[in-house]
Amino acid sequence: MGLTQKDLLSMQELTLDEIRLILDTAESMKEVARRDIKKVPTLRGKTVINLFYEPSTRTRTSFEIAGKWLSADVINVSTSASSVTKGESLKDTGLTLQAMYPNIVVIRHPAAGAAEFLAKRLAASVINAGDGAHEHPSQALLDLFTIREKLGRLEGLKVAIVGDIAHSRVARSNIHGMHKMGMEVRVAGPRTMLPRFIERLGVEVFTNLDRAIAEVDVIMMLRLQIERQQAGLFPSLREYSRLFGLTAERMKAAKSNALIMHPGPINRGVEIAPDVADGPYSLILNQVENGLAVRMALLYLLAGSGQA
């Protein structure tokens, strides 16, 4: 039993058993993450390249630390300081990196499909750390891990994902992953931010926050990308916040023990009120901590798949 594919590109392509294997492996990795000496030799001599075409704090840092704790050599390439600014194409950057024999390339890119494009051209395993509005599988896996850790199971749970669903790779990856784990998914947001035909993914669609969060076990808030205001998707931050911001007052519509999640970075006071984000049912920092364990599991499992 292991991961058979060379790459991790999407939640859509993972099977139920593979998701379970990743979550179980992450559980073992969490023990390593809590030791005094956080280092095991398993990926000694392996090279991981973080190739980020978009800004990122938690994902890049998290992959970097995860790799280092497993003794891999981790190199960060941020495009502002690389040949990309000289006009090098993704293909050429990829081939150049390939010539340095990395075992795993972690890529974040603004275009959907960029990770797959690279995966087809590289012998190394490719991990998609976010490609446009397509997928962000390691985020969905750490979300599933966090929920499972807190509630002891996934099957049968109800989740509401709230915010800009149309532009969210986190939402898309989570919808696929949660369905595979037998969870019920609702999405909610302003009509301009709900993609057409989203119900074809098997989700229930809401345009009213109170109704969406009633009866759910988990509320997952998405970051409002402020630049979407220019695109005319919402009239003002204040109005968005009034209709879709999660406050202590709004939480009265939800179950008293509903868990709150957010992939970060959060806009305090916009999509989520500070007292909710820092409240007792918030799992936001658990998500960050668990991201390390999940990414350690991914690096470990992929390092042994395919040729890497």
Binding site: G2, T25, S28, T42
Partner: peptide, 14 residues
């Protein structure tokens, strides 16, 4: 590791 087949399952050290 990586010599034969897929990665063995990692279980928890307790």
């Amino acid at each position: 590791l990586g010599k034969v087949g897929p990665q063995p399952i990692v279980r928890k050290t307790e």
